[in-house]
């Protein structure tokens, strides 16, 4: 599962994309919904938990927390940005 990162999430992770292993070789639970994905990422990158308004897109559409995600989906984390 590939995740494109935007705004401050790119800075938090330190890279423009992030890959999540799809097989359960890591022993960790694999996220199945947007909400689980946020929790999964929040455990690895606690700074992400601070973002109160973090939009998630699945296959280029805004996704609610209960949306189911699959390994072949393209996911993007899009926090609000404020610069002008």
């Amino acid at each position: 599962m590939t995740i494109l990162l935007f705004g401050i999430t790119k800075d938090i992770v330190g890279a423009p994309t992030l890959s999540i292993p799809t097989a359960s070789v890591t022993g960790k639970k694999i996220p199945k919904t947007v909400k689980e994905l946020k929790e999964f990422l929040g455990n690895t990158y606690p700074e992400l938990n601070k973002l109160s308004s973090l939009a998630v897109a699945v296959n280029n559409s805004y996704a609610e927390d209960d949306q189911v995600i699959n390994s072949y989906d393209e996911i993007a984390l899009i926090p609000p940005v404020s610069g002008g």
Binding site: S52, A55, P80
Partner: peptide
């Protein structure tokens, strides 16, 4: 897109 205003500390 962003229902609630982020706090000043969240996003630079």
């Amino acid at each position: 897109l962003y229902p609630n205003m982020p706090s000043a500390e969240e996003v630079p």
